[in-house]
């Protein structure tokens, strides 16, 4: 589904991704871990198409297409979803209205007719239940006045509404208490299918207790320096990153 080859990306004249290689197949869950500043969020942003970053080398193939030629919204409509680390507030724009527009754009791209008001309402109720999101929040402005936990739940709610093929979740677990964590994780697991994939960027092992990864990658200074399975995450939690970094020699 996703094939990243030798991806280099910079912001301004500072290179952050220095040759990323990653392959994600349908039905898989990948976790990306690494110390702060290693480029995890940048990778997520670059895949989503954030124009702040420039891809200087390498390629990304998504569902057989060259991802780099697509705009942010085109990538979204082809099923790429980014769960933001710091979801922004959009005052005056209600959650319900926002999602309705997004859902219908996605449908339009697939050649489907937009949902009727009733159909949409039903969809919203169904999906907000998955993340135990209070339906009252959908009448509020996007993320305005939401607590940290509510914002993250809101990301997963949107993910449920848009039903992506590839979901990249950037630090979706940061700032969550135990309950919120459980809800977010359960939501993600419920949405998992054979034909979609998830990339979870996280700092802590605990999310991975709920969302069991098939592969765990360690990102350090813009490169994936190690790949293992779920036991790697446990080891990193216990021993930190030092042992791994010391082994790794910069070429």
């Amino acid at each position: 589904m996703l094939k990243v080859e030798n991806l280099h990306a910079s912001v301004g004249d500072k290179e952050i991704l220095r040759g990323i290689n990653l392959e994600v197949k349908a039905g898989e869950v990948h976790a990306i871990m690494g110390p702060n500043g290693s480029g995890k969020s940048t990778l997520a942003s670059v895949l989503a198409g954030n124009e702040k970053f420039t891809v200087t080398a390498g390629s990304v193939e998504y569902m057989g297409e060259d991802l780099m030629t697509l705009s942010i919204e085109e990538r979204s409509r082809k099923g790429l979803f980014l769960g933001f680390q710091y979801p922004v507030e959009i005052p005056g724009v209600t959650m319900a209205n926002f999602m309705k527009l997004a859902v219908n754009e996605h449908r339009k791209a697939k050649g489907l007719a937009p949902l009727t008001a009733a159909e949409y309402l039903r969809l919203m109720r169904e999906k907000s239940a998955i993340v135990e999101l209070d339906s009252k929040l959908t009448a509020r402005s996007v993320n305005e006045g939401f607590s940290g936990g509510e914002k993250k739940k809101n990301e997963i709610f949107q993910m449920a509404m848009l039903d992506p093929k590839l979901a990249i979740l950037d630090e979706t677990d940061s700032g969550l208490d135990i309950d919120a964590l459980r809800i977010v994780a359960t939501g993600v697991t419920r949405l998992k299918r054979e034909d979609n994939a998830t990339v979870v960027i996280t700092h802590y092992q605990r999310l991975l207790d709920y969302i069991v990864p098939d592969y765990v990658h360690v990102l350090y200074k813009g490169r994936i320096i190690y790949t293992g399975d779920k036991s790697l995450a446990l080891k990193l939690e216990k021993e930190g990153y030092d042992w791994l970094i010391n082994d790794y020699k910069e070429e």
Partner: peptide, 11 residues
């Protein structure tokens, strides 16, 4: 905010 909305598919 514009980035956020585009990521959700809005032009």
């Amino acid at each position: 905010a514009v980035l956020y909305m585009r990521q959700r598919g809005l032009s």
